[in-house]
């Protein structure tokens, strides 16, 4: 088993550490690969798209030839988790902020995203969130976070704040507007690994 973490920029080591801890809890082993260049995604069994700056991430993913590899892998059913900027990249379309930087979206989920749905850094927040796949509230960290504002029939909503969808899945793709890698609560990494290992 090999899990790739896109390592171009952002909270990479935090995801790697969270995955390692969640794996060791389950008593499973998997190789975790930090991916900065093309050629590695096709070798992986699962993929994490971390948070960072989506404009930067999007353009370097294309420039390095990783974007097409991710699209192909997703089409073959590879489990993928995107957090924050990762959620933006997974989307089919974005708001004017996404449009004006000609952001390269991967279009793996039938959703429309607002890039900084809750505002700038001073509006960033932590909140106790009800997530449908977890049995108790989850302390979620939102940093200049995006949100899903429109979605197709195949998209399953896992959590909302008012009208904003902040966690959702569609087939093999899981998208979170917040940062599960920044807290010690590993439940969402565990949930992702459940999908990777087929329970």
């Amino acid at each position: 088993m090999r899990i790739g973490v896109i390592a171009i920029q952002g909270a990479v080591s935090e995801h790697v550490e969270a995955l390692e801890r969640a794996l060791s809890e389950r008593g499973e082993s998997a190789e975790i690969v930090a991916i900065k260049h093309s050629g590695l995604v096709p070798e992986c069994d699962a993929l994490v798209l971390p948070g960072g700056e989506s404009t930067t991430l999007g353009s370097l993913l294309v420039h390095e030839g990783i974007a097409d590899e991710i699209k192909e892998a997703a089409a073959k059913g590879m489990p993928i988790m995107g957090t924050c900027a990762g959620l933006i990249l997974l989307a089919k379309e974005g708001d004017s902020q996404v449009e004006k930087t000609h952001q390269n979206l991967l279009s793996l989920m039938d959703v429309r995203v607002n890039r900084n749905a809750f505002g700038r850094q001073r509006e960033s927040f932590e909140a106790e969130l009800d997530v449908s796949v977890l049995d108790s509230p989850y302390n979620a960290v939102f940093i200049r976070a995006p949100a899903i504002v429109e979605f197709g029939d195949d998209v399953k909503v896992l959590s909302k704040i008012d009208e904003f969808v902040v966690a959702a899945e569609q087939g093999n793709v899981l998208a979170l507007a917040f940062h599960p890698e920044l807290t010690d609560d590993l439940r969402l990494h565990r949930y992702f690994l459940d999908r990777v290992f087929g329970r």
């Binding site: 952002g10 927040f125 200049r144």
Partner: peptide, 25 residues
């Protein structure tokens, strides 16, 4: 969700913002 339940400007959020800049210019 009521807005007063959102916690702003915590250490986690401030340090977290900086982490999103890692590997960048």
């Amino acid at each position: 969700m009521e807005l007063e339940k959102l916690r702003h400007g915590t250490e986690l959020i401030k340090r977290g913002f900086a982490k999103m800049q890692k590997g960048g210019v």
